[in-house]
């Protein structure tokens, strides 16, 4: 228990960011119309691919002789890239569809 309390107090800044980000996330999409639910879900899915930054760092730090870690790290970068690239591309395609239906708002 002490360790966790200590961790929170040492990383105070991170926890402040954490709390503020929760409110920012809620605030920025609070007025989204129903038609945009699916594209927004897809777009935020692409954003969660930010984990790619971590996977680049983890593979970059891996000892080139540790084949297991290399394989896992390689997979992490590959899958995270799929999430990012695929996510943004598919969102773009969804939103393109919207443009062709000017009646909807």
């Amino acid at each position: 228990m002490d360790a966790i309390i200590n961790y929170i107090s040492v990383n105070q800044q991170e926890f402040y960011i954490f709390i503020l980000a929760v409110f920012v996330g809620i605030e920025v999409i609070s007025k989204v119309p129903t038609v945009l639910h699916t594209p927004l879900m897809s777009g935020s899915n692409a954003l969660s691919g930010v984990v790619i930054v971590g996977s680049i760092i983890v593979l970059g730090k891996t000892d080139p002789a540790n084949y297991l870690a290399l394989t896992l790290g390689f997979l992490a970068v590959l899958l995270a890239t799929l999430n990012v690239v695929g996510g943004f591309a598919v969102t773009n395609r969804m939103l393109e569809m919207f443009k062709k239906k000017p009646g909807k708002k």
């Binding site: 954490f18 809620i26 920025v28 999409i29 935020s44 969660s48 930010v50």
Partner: peptide
């Protein structure tokens, strides 16, 4: 951290 939580909270509201 920020991007993840942003998606986490926006995703939950969504």
């Amino acid at each position: 951290l920020m991007g993840g939580i942003l998606v986490g909270s926006a995703g939950l509201l969504l």
